[in-house]
């Protein structure tokens, strides 16, 4: 290694060394395979003033998971985890249904949903940052009881029928603005806002520092507890947004089964995007790619005619594959296997 800095590393080399290449490659491969399975896969057409097509559909469907995964990426960046996002979605959905039944303004109700998510984040953040409980354990509490809270909110107004009509929420679900589905635009807006908060302030650096080494960060003058607390609040808010979109899709509050296992998908998206569960790094863009990979897989199974239940098995294999790829031990074994063959 020369000690002179080399700003002009060849582009292809930089790309091949980049962490970003693998998830993107995975996405591309899946999409190419899809093209073989279904010849019309790449077609995009305009129906009733809105873009339609498999590619649009993948993005459209990935939005809730991607929103949750973005929040999760920040929490994971602090070396934490949030298992309660599914419950937060259930709670925010229940609040939306409740307030619509109560006759509130539908735009104000969105604020309720997001604030509810934030408050759930405050709860989680308090347990983790100020009581010092391990993140998996601390967020397990809300994970277990959150859906119960959602059911309870349903009960507040009788609860026999938590479904509702709302043109405004309908617009969030199926509407479009200038050909592009509204929720994709909403997602882009949220993503940019989050990116600005994380990357255009020092918050992202602080989160990564705390996740990398909390003790050292404290001595460097960072209030590690406060940073951890804030990350859970952000995660809660993101789950609140996701809850809103999922509730808009179903026009009802179903705390028992809404967003089941979404925490696992979100964690998977972060891991596919190159985030380590050991904390220390946040990749917002790559997390979105991770969410797209998961949705693209699901879509591929749908169009290939396999029963949708296979999706779970494919996901499991993807998890295992990513794990093996990240493990030094496994890589060594594979390398040794190939070397052994070469030597003979």
């Amino acid at each position: 290694m020369s000690s002179v800095s080399q700003p002009s590393t060849p582009v292809w080399k930089r790309i091949s060394q980049s962490r970003a290449i693998w998830p993107i490659l995975a996405l591309v491969v899946i999409l190419i395979v899809d093209g073989f399975i279904s010849p019309n896969f790449y077609n995009i057409r305009i129906v009733e003033g809105r873009l339609f097509g498999n590619l649009i559909d993948i993005v459209y469907r990935a939005v809730p998971t991607a929103l949750v995964a973005l929040g999760m990426a920040i929490v994971i960046g602090t070396k934490g985890i949030d298992l309660s996002v599914g419950s937060i979605i259930a709670i925010s959905g229940a609040i939306i249904a409740w307030r619509i039944q109560a006759g509130d303004n539908h735009v104000v109700i969105l604020a309720y949903a997001v604030i509810a998510g934030g408050l759930c984040g405050v709860w989680n953040g308090t347990l983790v940052a100020f009581l010092g409980i391990q993140p998996i354990i601390a967020t397990l509490i809300l994970m277990v009881s959150g859906r119960g809270v959602g059911m309870l909110i349903n009960l507040i107004y009788g609860g026999t029928d938590p479904s509702f009509e709302s043109a405004f929420l309908q617009g969030l679900s199926t509407g479009s603005i200038g050909y592009i589905p509204t929720r994709i635009l909403l997602f882009i807006a949220i993503f940019i806002a989050l990116w600005l908060v994380v990357r255009k302030t020092a918050l992202g650096l602080f989160v990564e520092s705390v996740g990398g080494n909390a003790a050292a960060s404290n001595l460097a003058g960072i209030n590690a507890r406060r940073i951890i607390f804030v990350s859970y609040v952000i995660c809660g808010v993101m789950a609140g947004w996701a809850g809103m979109i999922m509730t808009a899709d179903t026009h009802t509050s179903d705390p028992v089964s809404v967003a089941l296992y979404i925490e696992l998908d979100a964690i998977l998206a972060v891991v596919i995007g190159g985030g380590s569960l050991m904390g220390g790094r946040i990749y917002l863009g790559m997390t979105v790619i991770g969410a797209l990979v998961i949705q693209a897989l699901t879509t591929s199974i749908l169009i290939s005619g396999l029963p949708p239940e296979y999706n779970l098995i494919i996901k499991a294999l993807v998890v295992l594959f990513v794990l093996l790829l990240q493990s030094d031990n496994a890589r060594k074994q594979i390398v040794a296997l190939f070397r052994g063959k070469h030597n003979e």
Partner: peptide, 17 residues
């Protein structure tokens, strides 16, 4: 143990599978 990964994520794969 071999891959030295959190049990959480490995058994999550087990859950899906």
């Amino acid at each position: 143990d071999f891959c030295n990964i959190q049990p959480f994520i490995v058994t999550l794969a087990g859950l899906f599978l």
